[in-house]
């Protein structure tokens, strides 16, 4: 299927076209970029939710429970479930469909598993692109779920409008050691498996941490839920909805939307720059020579990096990488 055909299919709600379009975006192929260009103006309708938290927190089960609740509210749901690729083989086993068995035959749900593929800083961008395609396809809610709380995963989840941080009772140490940054990106916090002992302690700990975090007008609610039974899930979805309404109406909402846009542009540009610079470096042969020198202990890695950057700059022409000055910025 060609790009135009795929765009038409996605907009018409054709699931096969949607699936194929996602593959193109995921692969960052020329067709994928063309699709994103064509589909982006048709996005912005969906409510996007990022769900993150450490492995074993019960995120998949929670995504299932949230989806069921959204379906009861009459909304269609697209899900992007991201799992890590093996650092050795680059392969992956993606098992999220198992946790959402009952949802996979619901025509109002579309679940796509995604491997992180160890992209050069591009995971969050690729995943955001996939979310956009689902948005354009007309899903009312698009959930993106990531495993683990590494930099990449958190970034993926925060690319959504509302980020939900999932923890568990007894995860006290984990909460204590949580980077303030993670606290600040979450708009909703939920202690899952709240039927286990220690749920209230976890809530107290989160509250204490929030008290010292640098927050803006939105105060993240801290909720308890048992994803397995669905307990507390309607309240969670209510809280997500409240944040969504806040974004739509409040003056800060506009600021946050602009910030999200800025983050996306910068991240994509950074990834592209990174990739292109390395391609140039490898292509010019400068890298290979420097590798020999550093490996032979004839030159230190830092100097080598500077030389490499110099070589890239020369290839590209100094102007392209110069600090923006009023003159060249205007050009």
């Amino acid at each position: 299927m060609q790009a135009a055909e795929l765009v038409e299919g996605v907009l018409a709600g054709n699931r096969r076209a949607l699936a194929r379009a996602i593959s193109h975006v995921e692969a960052d192929s020329p067709t994928g970029r063309e699709l994103q260009r064509a589909l982006y103006p048709r996005t912005g309708r969906a409510q996007t939710i990022g769900i993150t938290g450490s492995a074993g927190a019960g995120k998949s089960t929670l995504v299932g429970a949230v989806t069921r609740d959204e379906r009861r509210r009459g909304r269609t749901v697209g899900i992007v479930a991201v799992d890590p690729s093996s650092p050795f083989s680059h392969g992956a086993i993606l098992g999220d469909r198992i946790r959402m068995q009952d949802l996979t035959s619901d025509p109002g749900v579309f679940l796509r598993s995604m491997a992180s593929r160890g992209n050069l800083g591009g995971l969050s961008e690729t995943a955001t692109g996939v979310v956009d395609v689902m948005d354009a396809a007309g899903y009312d809610v698009v959930i993106i779920e990531t495993v683990g709380a590494g930099q990449d995963e958190v970034e993926v989840a925060t690319a959504a409008q509302t980020t939900v941080l999932v923890t568990n009772p007894g995860a006290g140490d984990e909460i204590q050691s949580m980077k303030a940054g993670l606290m600040e990106v979450a708009q909703v916090m939920v202690v899952n498996k709240a039927d286990l002992a220690g749920a209230d302690t976890a809530v107290t700990q989160l509250r204490a941490l929030l008290a010292i975090a640098d927050l803006r007008a939105w105060r993240p609610p801290i909720l308890k839920a048992v994803a397995k039974t669905g307990e507390g899930v309607p309240e969670l979805v209510d809280a997500i909805d409240e944040h969504h309404a806040y974004l739509r109406s409040h003056e800060h909402g506009d600021r946050e939307r602009r910030e999200l846009a800025r983050k996306q542009i910068v991240a994509l540009a950074r990834a592209a720059l990174h990739r292109q610079a390395l391609e140039t470096a490898e292509h010019s042969g400068a890298l290979a020579a420097l590798v020999d020198e550093v490996a032979g202990r004839r030159r230190d890695p830092r100097s080598a990096a500077e030389i490499l950057l110099g070589a890239v700059k020369r290839e590209w022409g100094e102007a392209a990488l110069a600090e923006p000055t009023p003159e060249n910025a205007a050009r």
Partner: peptide, 24 residues
Amino acid sequence: GMEVIYTGIRQTPGMIAEAALQED
């Protein structure tokens, strides 16, 4: 090096086909 969508046991033919479609 492949990406394996593992759905495990007790899959109906409909579930399998839908997974194949959605996961492309």
